[in-house]
């Protein structure tokens, strides 16, 4: 697995994290291309099933990137997201995929550097964890 390139899906809130990612881009900050960003109107809108589907379809890691505490455009979407993330982590542990593959982070629209840093850290963390057990099999099956 030396040339394992993790696939990380980031659900990024339109009002903060997505804008931060945008800023990272315009500032020409480099961060790993492994992170695939999905823009959402609010992380509170990220259904548990969305996260599950990401893993089911082969993501090695998922990141839910929300607004800072108290800064949610919809008041408490980030709080809801946090409890959804907790629940999915438990479920991933139960399945045997591992809850540590799911991360939640908080940042504001102005934090372009922070976004790049987070993307790097998560990619490295998932790289260390190795491919998701779900993906490993589908890749192997595809190869055969």
């Amino acid at each position: 697995m030396e040339n394992f390139e993790p696939v990380v899906v980031a659900f990024a809130c339109h009002y903060c994290a997505y804008t931060a990612a945008d800023m990272a881009g315009t500032k020409r900050l480099s961060y790993p291309p492994n992170v695939k960003i999905i823009r959402v109107p609010c992380t509170g809108k990220v259904d548990m099933l969305h996260i599950m589907k990401a893993f089911e379809k082969g993501a090695d890691g998922v990141c839910v990137a929300a607004c800072l505490d108290g800064d949610c455009h919809f008041r408490t979407g980030n709080v809801r997201a946090a409890s959804h993330v907790d629940a999915v982590r438990k479920l991933l542990d139960e399945i045997g995929v591992g809850g540590e593959r799911l991360e939640m982070v908080a940042l504001s629209a102005g934090m372009g550097e922070r976004f790049a840093q987070i993307a790097t850290e998560i990619t490295e963390k998932i790289r260390k964890l190795g491919p998701s057990p779900v993906r490993k099999v589908s890749v192997a099956a595809g190869a055969a």
């Binding site: 599950m52 589907k53 089911e56 479920l91 045997g96 057990p133 779900v134």
Partner: peptide, 15 residues
């Protein structure tokens, strides 16, 4: 939906 996804993953990790 969640259970279906969980079961699929639980089995697919065992091939």
């Amino acid at each position: 939906g969640l259970l279906a996804s969980s079961l699929k993953m639980a089995f697919s990790k065992d091939g």
